[in-house]
């Protein structure tokens, strides 16, 4: 009992601290409201979303990207500065469709204070891919299809116009220009990929992130394992993919920037035993674009890089 009495002050202390913390949720001034003449503060998640937000926003916006180049949104660990970036933003753009994992809850709660907008929200359900087991759980990797990404432009444009109506014309102008650029990019992608004959249009990667790319540009996408990075491959998966390489006579497979290349190497070894020597055609940008300041640091550069590698790897030698 004496112990109980001795610990009583500690209990009281905890209760006081909790009441203190619980009763006064953050009163830090959240911005939002009228932006007036100052630049619009924008916070984004993945770095291709950062690129989009900057292109449409132009001079009027200051964009802070939470995820640097090469950071897989599923594996993102926040740094201390990210708190202020979210708190001070006028608007937050994110990928949505569970791309950001747990952060989605936070962005959802934040939407009481300020617009938090999933750039994928403008895409109708019938254009989204969903795994057969789970209804309503969509594949988030929409940016691999240029026409789908074009929908994201509309979402961002709309958000800016609502937030900063005085400068609506500028946003509309830049969005129109970018939509034209994306249309040109789409045509370019189709033309580059046209060099690959139908029977070689097979994209072998370590996990299943390129579904939208396959649907849009008529590729069969063969992943060693499903979308989940928490599970493991089976020997049957390795043999199955090696079988595809051997049967179709593929000369190149691809690794992704965020997954260990080990299983792809095992597949190549198994394919070699079946008489088909393939090589690693290069590293595709999967869940993040490249470094800032390099061509691959933008969405357009990232797509060009990926498509270039794929065409180089799969097109017959004569056509290159």
């Amino acid at each position: 009992m004496s112990m109980a009495r001795r610990l009583l002050p500690a209990l009281v202390a905890i209760v006081v601290v909790v009441l203190l913390g619980a009763a006064c949720a953050s009163d830090s001034s959240t911005s939002g409201g009228d932006v007036g003449e100052r630049p619009v503060r924008v916070t984004t998640t993945a770095n291709f979303i950062t690129d989009l937000a900057e292109v449409i926003g132009g001079e009027r916006v200051e964009v802070t990207g939470l995820l640097g180049p090469g950071v897989d949104p599923h594996l993102y660990k926040a740094s201390a500065g990210d708190v202020a970036a979210l708190r001070d933003a006028d608007v937050v753009f994110y990928g949505g469709l569970d791309l950001e994992g747990r952060m989605a809850d936070v962005l959802d709660e934040l939407s009481d204070d300020k617009p938090t907008i999933a750039v994928s929200e403008g895409i109708p359900d019938d254009r989204k891919r969903q795994p057969t087991e789970f209804e309503g759980k969509f594949d988030p990797h929409i940016w691999f299809s240029v026409p789908l990404w074009r929908e994201a432009v509309d979402v961002v444009e709309q958000a800016y116009v609502e937030l900063d109506p005085d400068n609506a014309d500028g946003y509309r102008e830049r969005a129109d220009a970018y939509r034209a650029e994306l249309e040109a990019l789409d045509a370019e992608v189709r033309e580059t990929l046209a060099s690959i004959p139908d029977d070689k249009r097979v994209l072998v990667t370590s996990h299943d992130a390129f579904g939208y790319f396959g649907e849009e540009y008529d590729f069969e996408v063969v992943g060693i394992q499903g979308t989940s990075t928490a599970t493991e491959a089976t020997t049957a998966d390795i043999d199955r993919v090696a079988g595809v390489i051997a049967d179709r006579g593929l000369e190149a497979v691809f690794i992704e920037s965020t997954v260990s290349p080990q299983t792809i190497r095992a597949v190549l070894a198994a394919a070699e035993r079946r008489g088909q020597t393939a090589r690693i055609g290069g590293e595709l940008f999967a869940d993040a674009a490249g470094e800032r300041g390099t061509p691959e640091g933008t969405y357009i550069g990232m797509v060009r890089h990926n498509v270039g590698l794929i065409a180089e790897g799969l097109a017959p030698s004569g056509s290159r």
């Binding site: 180049p69 897989d72 493991e232 020997t235 080990q262 299983t263 190497r265 095992a266």
Partner: peptide, 18 residues
């Protein structure tokens, strides 16, 4: 902001089937 950092933590861990 170095793009090469992707998957540093997963890069090292293999799986038995591979």
């Amino acid at each position: 902001g170095n793009a090469q950092q992707a998957g540093l933590e997963t890069y090292l861990f293999g799986q038995a089937a591979g």
